[in-house]
Structure formats: structure tokens, C-alpha cells
Simulated scan of single mutants.
Amino acid sequence: MTTGVPLSTAPRRRSRARTFLPLAVAAWMILEIWLLSLVAGAAGGLTVAALLMGGIVLGAVVIKRAGRRAFKNLTNTFQQAQQGRQPTPQQPGGGNGLTMLAGLLLILPGLLSDVAGLLLLIPPVRALVGRRAGRSLERRMAAAPAGSFGDAFQQARIHQPDGKVVQGEVIRENDPQRAAPGPHAGYRPPLAP
């Protein structure tokens, strides 16, 4: 049984990320092991173990603190929304996601990941990385083809002039594809519960 849709026999082209990401991860791991062996040779194995344990403890503290701050921000936002007030926007560069990423990099065993995690803990560096990541995400979402996740993301961000987000669906009454015969022909389920 055929569906009438022609199947493409051309091989799918792999994206650069899928090609180079495994190589980059392997190179990162080899470099981390090499640096740890250099430090172990110069300062001793006990020093390397202390550095790794210190990174794990510091990373856990950073993640716990960022998680508490994120939960507190979420609670404040819900309380403001329940009181009918407009939630206050978070300060730029104060995102907890990058702080949690810094904690995760500190927890990962290795010296390069620890240095990257410590750099992300510096507020100007975190703000710079956050701005660059936001701009990159905006560019990718704007260039997304119709019907993709990026297009859905852009559609969800439609704003009214007063700044309120309007989520919904356009329903055309004269659309023959939506007209269904039967007892529930005019019924449409609500958009929100």
C-alpha cells in the first residue's frame, strides 16, 4: 500500500553540530585527563583529589543557592500575579540558568571545567554570555522555517500594544476543512481550562 508521498533516496546531510560535537567532547575529555596528570605529577595525587573534591562541594553549593533563588523568584511571581499586579521583570544577567551551569561545570571532574565554571560565576562574564546566548537564540528562532518549533515559539510571543501576551487560535467560520457534519458541528473546545 502506497501513500502517494514520494520517498527521497538522497542521503540526509549531517549538521555540523552532530559531526563536530562528539569530537569536541572527546578532545575536552582527553585534555582534562592530561591536565590532571600534569598537576598530579607536579603537586601529587592528594592535591588533585583535594581540587576535585573542592570543585564538587563548591558546585553543589552554587547549584543549591541558584535553585533556591529561582524558587524564590517563581514564588514572588505567582504571588504578584495572584494579587493582580504585573510581575516585576528579573534583572538582566541575573538568570539562574547560567549560575546552575556554572555549578554543573564545577561538579564535573576536571580543571578546565572548573575554570569555566568559576568564570561563569563572575557577574559581568555571566551577563555577557547570557546576552550572546539570547541573541543567538533569537536569530535561530527568527530564521526557523514555518511549522517548526522555532515558528511556534515566535507565534507564542505575539504581544498586544499594552504588553500583554495574547495566546489563541484564529478560527475562520467559512473554512470547509473545519466544518464537520454531525450534532457537534459548531462546538469548539475552550482554549484554556
Rank of each mutant, 00 (worst) to 15 (best):
P190N: 07
P124Q: 04
L119Q: 01
I30S: 10
T88Y: 02
M53R: 11
A17T: 12
G45A: 14
R16N: 07
F71M: 10
G182D: 03
S136N: 05
G67E: 03
S148F: 06
M53D: 08
I30G: 12
R131E: 05
S113K: 02
V61N: 00
L98N: 03
G93H: 00
V61R: 06
T9D: 11
A70C: 01
V5A: 13
G150E: 04
V62F: 01
R135L: 10
P92Y: 01
L46G: 15
V166D: 10
S15R: 12
Q91N: 11
Q90A: 14
E138P: 00
S37H: 06
D151G: 09
R178I: 04
R12M: 09
Q160P: 02
S8T: 09
T9I: 09
P181Y: 08
L106I: 02
L58W: 08
G147L: 02
A42R: 11
N96H: 09
I33N: 04
M1K: 12
G59D: 04
G94A: 15
Q155I: 04
I33M: 10
L7A: 15
N73L: 12
F20I: 06
A40F: 03
F153E: 07
T75L: 09
S148W: 07
P123A: 00
Q91T: 09
L119R: 00
A24N: 02
L36T: 03
K164C: 07
K72Y: 07
G67A: 07
L51N: 04
P190H: 06
D151M: 07
R135I: 05
A144M: 06
G94K: 07
R18T: 11
S15G: 15
P92E: 03
L74P: 00
D162Y: 08
S37V: 08
F20W: 15
A49P: 01
W28Q: 11
Q90E: 14
A50K: 04
A81H: 10
I158C: 10
Q83L: 12
M29G: 14
T19C: 03
P124L: 02
G97C: 06
P11N: 08
E173V: 09
L46V: 15
A180Q: 15
A179T: 09
G163A: 06
V115S: 04
V115D: 01
R12E: 13
V39H: 05
I122M: 00
V170A: 12
L121W: 00
L58A: 15
R172A: 13
V129E: 04
A146K: 13
G110V: 01
G103M: 02
P89R: 12
G4S: 11
A60L: 14
